[in-house]
Design a binder for these strands. Structure first.
Lengths: 343, 343
DNA sequence: GAAGCTTTTTGTCACGCGTAAAATTGTTAT
DNA sequence: ATAACAATTTTACGCGTGACAAAAAGCTTC
């Protein structure tokens, strides 16, 4: 068969017996051409598996039909899960999703933002680094690209924010622990790199004071995102120095708690709320593995799915609204206490 | 200041007092223009923060300076870590990396491959789903795009393969366990979804037979990528039914082992190699959390970093070689036994 | 200061498709 | 059958850049 290879839309249009603009229209919206025409195009499509050049398409299109997703650290299971859910929602909504990670570094976040901007996406779902973000850079970015902020709020930046209410996280855990035993001390990094740590720090202090109790902080050293290791090392030291002021430890997040539990196990400490237990340990986030720690970890669930779904929905509404909202909405999801064996 | 907005390279060239082709050359390789010219361009660059239109650029470029990275499941910490390392290597080498995940589904893998192809990348690092991949689809993809296969080999497909030697994984664990106690039974999924499970299954049988021992399989039910849960449920059942034929359990991968350890803990079983321990448990991969299980997990390390580095290097060589190698090389890294407390 | 080389300019074509307007064809209702 | 309308084709232009060739300008070296 003397079929010459199909390279351009021109070629393909000729092969399918339809004009090029009609083919173009078909790819823009298959429902916009007559049924008989659509069938001819789709028949040719199977025969030649032609795909339009994405670069040439986007060069002149006003609506790119692509969205960017950016998270602070993709190797963190919580963000990996959020990114996974977001990507699926975008694909289902007919968008092409491009995934970016800041790798925990300010510089890389800014660079990724630049790359993202040059993709000219219809919209962006951005979970910023937070404290170490280049605030001005993000602000400028958000002025050019319709952006929904996720997980970590930055006041006044972006068209909307969707995340969890840190206050509800910490107040629930503090309330529960105080009600069922000794009030908790707070186990955290001295210089945290992940977004919500500082907010939780404040919320812990607030929650304790609202109970008329003195806040007790146990701060561990360490840099970066290797949180289990930091929790483990800090836990070992704290146990050796007997620097836990109570028998109840509330960890800033589950990853620190996982490290602390490992340290406790190594020290032969029994963890849990029964008699004969030396320590109660609780965390925050409902990390995918907190279900499988030994003992299983009592924690406060970060409702990934709700946040992701709502974030995606908000972005789609934003895109339909032309990229701007009249006023900036902030949607906060309450946390959900998950009782397990460790506290 | 009557500065009109800079939109095109033409505008920018005028604003910087240089001709447009020179600006184009600068973006292609800043070192290719004279120093004084470079400085003028860079001065203008700071003033106007112009960035060339990426779509218009790639429309005519033969070499896109972008690479695609694709993994089976981004929410799996092992693949998240591999993806993270690969992305950094690519950025360091001056490429723009685009990340894709198959989300564990054959259909999504094929679709992502189509999207990836239409990006016309210089090269692709592909860790395929394996058993559930659409082999023909991948083969066709690899004929069009220079591809290095990672982690999971598919015979004859792609220009090169870089991964770990499953035989060295399993033989090391079997040897060690057999040498220091009872020979291990093999704890695995009956219908595994992740890439290397079947290979490890075969290697276990081979290793046992080479010792003149009868292979003992403990297969658990379950679908998908929620491996800890599957290991936990399967472990609970096996412990109740007393279906572990020996006191030594070798898990197909660490995630199953993490679930099994949680089940053992809940059953009150002591794990480890000391006297007074009911069971020894070991895994494969050196999962990022295997260090923090209770007890810490004896395992065989998957050398992520070596595989990632070598994979990236191989791809860069491939790209420089014009996209084809004369013969298909397969690089296997040996595993490294990691002794911890659980076995 | 002139030869010899490198860099830059200028000009032109190509890339693959979006988009608009006008002309034509096809479809449906009357 | 004819009008009225919708879908399609034709025609033509534009998008922002890469690639190339030839001419002009700049720099280095002796």
């Amino acid at each position: 068969m003397g079929e010459l290879t199909i390279r351009t839309m021109e070629d393909f249009a000729a092969a399918s017996g339809v004009s090029r603009p009609t083919v173009s229209k078909y790819f823009h919206d298959p429902g916009s051409v007559r049924k008989s025409t659509r069938e001819r195009i789709e028949a040719a499509l199977e025969q030649y598996d032609y795909r339009p050049n994405i670069y040439a398409m986007n060069q002149n299109r006003q609506l790119t039909k692509s969205v960017g997703i950016m998270v602070p650290y993709l190797a963190d299971p919580v963000f990996a899960e959020i990114a996974r859910t977001l990507e699926r929602r975008c694909i289902e909504a007919g968008f092409h999703a491009t995934l970016f990670s800041s790798h925990g570094e300010r510089k890389l976040e800014s660079e990724a933002l630049n790359d993202l901007r040059s993709l000219r996406p219809s919209g962006v779902l951005l979970a910023p680094l937070g404290r170490s973000s280049d605030r001005d850079h993000i602000a400028r970015f958000c002025e050019e690209v319709p952006t929904v902020l996720l997980d970590r709020n930055i006041a006044g930046i972006g068209e909307a924010f969707v995340g969890s209410d840190n206050k509800s996280f910490v107040s629930q855990s503090v309330d529960y622990l105080t009600r069922t035993g000794e009030p908790p001390c707070f186990f955290e990094m001295r210089n945290p790199g992940n977004p919500n740590s500082l907010a939780r720090h404040r919320c812990y202090i607030e929650a304790m004071e609202s109970h008329g109790l003195e806040p007790m902080l146990v701060q561990v050293e360490g840099e970066g995102w290797n949180l289990e290791e930091i929790g483990y090392q800090g836990g070992m030291r704290a146990l050796q120095d007997r620097s836990f002021p109570t028998d109840t430890v509330l960890c800033s997040n589950d990853r620190l708690a996982i490290g602390l539990l490992a340290a406790c196990y190594e020290k032969g400490l029994r963890i849990g709320r029964g008699s004969g237990c030396a320590l109660r340990v609780a965390g925050h986030d409902d990390h995918p593995y907190s279900r499988f720690t030994c003992p299983s970890l009592t924690t406060v669930a970060h409702e990934y799915d709700l946040v992701s779904d709502c974030g995606a929905e908000t972005l789609f509404r934003l895109i339909e609204a032309g990229g701007r909202f009249d006023d900036r909405t902030e949607t906060l999801f309450s946390a959900r206490l998950v009782l397990r064996a460790s506290a």
